[in-house]
Structure formats: C-alpha cells, structure tokens
Write a protein that binds this DNA or RNA. Structure first.
Ligand SMILES: [Mn+2]
Ligand SMILES: [Mn+2]
Ligand SMILES: [Zn+2]
Ligand SMILES: [Zn+2]
Lengths: 130, 130
DNA sequence: TCAATACATTAGAATCGTTCTAAACTGATA
DNA sequence: TATCAGTTTAGAACGATTCTAATGTATTGA
C-alpha cells in the first residue's frame, strides 16, 4: 500500500503512528492470518513498541471497518484474516497455521436450513494432519 | 441407554454417581451439543448438584474415551458433541445453537494440501442468519 | 499557528471460560 | 471391611481478551 495514511483516513480511522505501522504490515499485499499474539511478536521484531491493548484495539477497529475478517477456528485465540473475500482454509492444528483456499469449491448435498433460518455463509475448514 | 454403569465400565470409567447422572443425560439416544455451562444448567434443573470442576473433568474423560467429539466453533466456549460420527453442522450464532447435518455432503474443487501435509478431515460449517 | 477538543494509546485491573491443586471422598478389590 | 487408586470438589491459578481511566496526540478552526 502506497499511501497508508490516506487509506486509513478513507476508512474513518485516524492515521496514528501505531495504526500506520500495523496497517503497513498487515496490508503489504501479502494476505496474512494473525492473532493478537503473533502480531505483537512481529511488531516486537520490528522494534515497534506497541502495547497489547493497542494491538487489540487496532485489530477490532480494522475489523469494524471491514478491513479484516475474524476467524473463529479454535477456542484458544481469535484469528484475523487480511483476505476479506469469501474463502476457505487449510488448518494445521499442529503448527497453528491457516492457509487460504482461494479456488472455487462447491458443497453439494446440503439440506434445507431449519424453518425461519436462512444460510448466511458456508465455511469449509480442511484439517491437516501433522 | 439401559445399563449406564456397564457402559462406563466398558469404557474404563468408574461409574461414580456423578458420571452416571451425566452419562444418562448425554447418552439418552438423542444427540446433543453441550458446553460445560449448558450441561451445568441442565444438571441444576435436574437437582443434581455436580460441581463445575467435575463437569469439566467428566466431559474431558468422555472425550478421551471417544464418547464425545470436541467442536471448536467459536472462541468463547468449547462444544461437546454426542454424535461421534463424522458430520457437519448448521450454526446459529444468534441462539448459539448447533444442528447436525447428517446427510452425505460432498466438497468438490478442493486443491492439493501443502507439501508433507495430508488431509485429516473436512468440516463444513453452515452459518445461519437470525 | 495553536489552543481546544475529540479521539487514541497505555498500564494495569477486571473478566470469564477453563485448568490446576490438594484435601476429602468413594468405588473396586481382596 | 480395610485398603487404595481413582474421583470429586472448592477455590486458586491461568490466559486470552476487555475494560478503566489517566495521559498523549491528530484535527481543526479561529
Ligand atoms: Mn474458553
Ligand atoms: Mn480467548
Ligand atoms: Zn484466509
Ligand atoms: Zn453434531
């Protein structure tokens, strides 16, 4: 992303020092799956001393503006996904890693949803061994 | 289940008062999705004064013996499923409820897994609106 | 330019589901 | 029935996340 400050402003987010650093990292063109912890570690390596509270705040702010997707994969932590298109994932529990599945998959044989409910979205999670 | 004590013994679990009550409820022939909290509430209504610690212990003991499946649907709580067959779910975030999808669904167009990894299982979660 | 102010950052406390600890209890066995 | 391994339990601890409230900063309009 060339002009992160402009990008943040466009999304009604003040381009603070912290948000610029985080947005520069997250939206560098390479899709990422981060947790508060993995992001914090990455920022520490970059010598960016951003508090955990701000990391949580920023992830949620970005999420609220639709810049990130939330993935509820396991009960231990929340993943945020920079790929906001509808897509599926490989998940390796072993190395706690997600990999995007961008090809168009089809689910067939789906039964009707229960009365008065309608399908919002279908999520396929492919668990990997090892 | 007719003989819960025998059933527990068969699974190398001592048929204690608490386990018998919980197993009688969980394995009554109707598949269930419970959390520690929903199970605790149900047991309270049945006037069974079983501590939360025991509820957690028992759910995990049953899980370890393969009598329950664990479902990591969201980051707020762990669901245990009495249906241990491979199957999929409708999930209503709104009423925090899971519904089994027992029909045989097919996922087509799945790409190859990454090098050195193989597919363990495919889980389809159908999110319901409302 | 520069207050005034609305918004953002932060350390640390609080929350909450879950796990751990260690003392009391009980089912299995002889 | 005594023994003891396995179980239950209250309450403490844990860990991810959220909250609080004090401090800092981006924005803006005079
Ligand atoms: Mn939890
Ligand atoms: Mn969490
Ligand atoms: Zn993704
Ligand atoms: Zn199920």
């Amino acid at each position: 992303m060339k002009d992160i400050k402009h990008f943040l402003r466009q999304n009604s987010l003040r381009p603070t020092k912290q948000r610029v650093i985080i947005a520069n990292y997250l939206f560098d063109g390479i899709n990422k799956h981060v947790t508060a912890e993995t992001l914090s570690n990455k920022l520490l390596k970059m010598k960016a001393g951003i508090s955990l509270a701000t990391i949580y705040n920023t992830l949620h702010d970005f999420y609220e503006k639709g810049l990130l997707k939330k993935l509820m994969i396991n009960s231990e932590r929340i993943y945020f996904d920079t790929n906001t298109e509808h897509h599926h994932h490989f998940y390796s529990k072993n190395d706690q890693k997600l990999i995007d599945i961008n090809v168009d998959m089809k689910v067939s044989g789906l039964p009707k949803p229960p009365k008065n409910k309608k399908i919002n979205k279908i999520e396929v999670l492919v668990h990997l061994d090892n």
